[in-house]
Design a protein around this nucleic acid. Structure first.
Lengths: 237, 237
DNA sequence: TGTTCGTAACGAACATGTTCGTTACGGTGC
DNA sequence: GCACCGTAACGAACATGTTCGTTACGAACA
């Protein structure tokens, strides 16, 4: 099996066509997505754009999930990281970065789903993590907690955006929401007293308010929840 | 468009075939999944099992996501809720329920992905939420916080299981993990000092340890993070 | 009984992701 | 120059989810 990178520099020139490259494929994918939406970034559409066949793309990307991860990494360049080196309360700045990240995903919700499964590992992603860790460090959060917490922060943002992807769709999402609403409101006080009491609360809040609370809640939790004792694992190198 | 429920009771009998029903379809899906795995629960396979055509299933389920949500709700019957009415520390019991939920998803990881997008709204799901709310209530967590927090608890469990689905796969997952590992370890101290310092930590911990910490962290956060002031929204009903 | 209407069930068709066997190219060695 | 090898690129094929137009059934009505 081939190595998936832009490494396999083509050593051949079929009839006057430039050889494929991984960056070229990703760039084409980003272009199509900006012009037509993520759903249009199909292997066939991409191949057409690159004047090749869909099967040829698999030399450079393992599958669409990997392609999406790469596309997402490109988009992460748009996340506003200026708060990392700004003045002010570290918690608010941390939230600002996270909201910026979430906003990027909200604009391309289909990517959020993919990102839950195939996470990016490119330059922009690393820069984002570095920024988050810097802010947690500034807030005095122990490294061990920050290391695991940063994962959860991004997971929350990503999963929320992925859910939003569905919520944003028309008829189907509305019916699902209706079903959940009905189920919650219909819960009997006898069998589901807590749900009955909190039905309205469970469904309350604007998405951005819930998200904001979620980040506050996570930051609090991360800051004050010690990691399990490191078990008998010797220090590395 | 038709109403998606088991309501459309068939008024016809084509050549000696029992009319389709939604519960029947879901039961068949669960059966196939138990015997052959979730990936085998295709519309065609299901239709074959039910001696009908794949297109006929769409009268009863909108799409595979909805089918998966229904299947998941069936499986939630297996979540151990005995801790809800047991003795002991409410936090530990809450974690026990959550771990049981996560375990169910780990056994059927493909469902976790679907559940992030099309969440169940059936009986078992409600019972689970009721149990979680009861435990948070017992711990003195304000209702408003519990109402929003329960969402995040389940989201964390579900997203973690969905990630696990990928991690558990062989070659592809290993390569992705390698890519992330390389990226993290390769980060230069000059540009990514925090990552360089925490590289080992970022990747450390057995899945169950990280999950356990995650739940502790979330529970702490939920318990102590007040909800935003209710803004000028008048009381409903 | 005949007609009308709503819809469960059906079949053909389409789009999409992916695999696998084949082709053709470029590099290397003799 | 020729033969061999590795692999980028290709094309056919397959599985899968889903849509849309059509058929056939049962209920209601005159």
């Amino acid at each position: 099996m081939t190595v998936h990178s832009d490494g396999p520099r083509s050593r051949r020139e079929r009839p006057a066509k430039p050889a494929l490259t991984r960056p070229g494929i990703i760039a084409a994918a980003v272009e199509i997505m900006r012009g037509e939406g993520l759903e249009r970034v199909t292997m066939r559409r991409l191949a057409q754009q690159l004047d090749t066949g869909p099967a040829s793309l698999y030399v450079y990307v393992r599958n669409t999930a990997e392609l999406h991860a790469a596309v997402l990494d490109e988009l992460l360049g748009a996340v506003d990281l200026t708060p990392v080196h700004a003045e002010g309360d570290w918690r608010e700045r941390l939230e600002t970065v996270l909201v910026s990240y979430t906003t990027v995903l909200f604009e391309h919700p289909g990517l959020a789903r993919s990102a839950l499964v195939a996470r990016p590992s490119g330059e922009h992603y690393l820069t984002l993590i570095e920024g988050l860790l810097a802010l947690l460090d500034e807030g005095g959060v122990p490294g061990a907690q920050a290391a695991w917490g940063v994962d959860v922060l991004l997971q929350h943002a990503t999963a929320t955006a992925a859910e939003h992807a569905t919520r944003g769709r028309a008829a189907g999402a509305q019916q699902e929401w209706d079903a959940l609403t009905r189920a919650l409101h219909g819960a009997r006080e006898q069998t589901h007293p807590h749900i009955a009491a909190l039905a309205a609360e469970l469904l309350s809040g604007a998405p951005q308010d819930r998200l904001s609370w979620g980040f506050h809640m996570l930051i609090n939790g991360i800051a004050q929840t010690p990691r399990p004792t490191p078990s008998q694992e010797p220090p590395r190198h």
